[in-house]
């Protein structure tokens, strides 16, 4: 045990004194922006952004719909009602797992909308980037909590397992969490507004 501690201390001292390590510790904006570009590719993908909407009306999008539409059946319109309306809750149709028919309801545990302040639909890379760093617009999360939310939340995980015939979000939950780690370690830079 003691030998291990000495070894760790020695490695630590080497890292602290290493010029490369010092460079690595400094925020590296270019690699941070590269990680963010991948995160934006994921967050703005229709599989994620279709439910991150401002007006409480999720989108139906994907090739199998032949276009992009607001969810029919007069769903939504009350952004504060994230679980649906009395008499027509999200879970009236959306079950704990995906329907096995293409136009049947997709499903995951506790199907619901994110709050309106987390809306991503139609927003730019800069806007979403500033938003996900802002605890008032990201569910009160630190960047570390954001990483675990992406890596572990079952409804987020649905984006990569959306059921038969639906194109999943790019990359994977694990890769997305890794991109968030890399972005955070580089100071979480955001691209300049166009």
């Amino acid at each position: 045990m003691r030998a291990s501690l000495i070894k760790i201390a020695a490695v630590g001292a080497f890292l602290i004194s290493s010029p490369n390590a010092q460079e690595a510790e400094a925020p590296d904006e270019a690699s941070g922006l590269a990680a963010w570009a991948k995160i934006y590719e994921i967050f703005s993908d229709e599989r994620c952004a279709s439910c991150h909407v401002a007006d409480g009306r999720p989108m139906w999008s994907g090739e199998h719909y032949g276009g992009t539409y607001k969810h029919p059946m007069y769903v939504g319109g009350s952004p504060e009602l994230l679980l649906g309306h009395p008499g027509l809750m999200c879970t009236t149709c959306h079950m704990a797992e995906n329907a096995q028919k293409l136009h049947g309801p997709p499903g995951a545990e506790v199907w619901h909308l994110p709050p309106a302040e987390m809306a991503w639909w139609g927003k730019s890379s800069t806007e979403i980037c500033e938003q996900v760093k802002d605890p008032t617009r990201n569910g009160g999360r630190t960047l570390a909590e954001l990483q675990s939310h992406v890596a572990e939340d079952p409804l987020v995980a649905w984006g990569w397992a959306p059921g038969p015939g639906r194109k999943p979000a790019p990359y994977s939950a694990k890769e997305t969490a890794d991109f968030l780690v890399a972005w955070s370690a580089s100071g979480a830079p955001c691209p300049p507004a166009d």
Binding site: M73, Y74, V75, H85, P86, G87, L88
Partner: peptide, 13 residues
């Protein structure tokens, strides 16, 4: 005591 809109929102499915 639902309003017309409450009824429409529940029944539109």
């Amino acid at each position: 005591e639902p309003s017309d809109d409450d009824i429409d929102r529940a029944m539109s499915g």
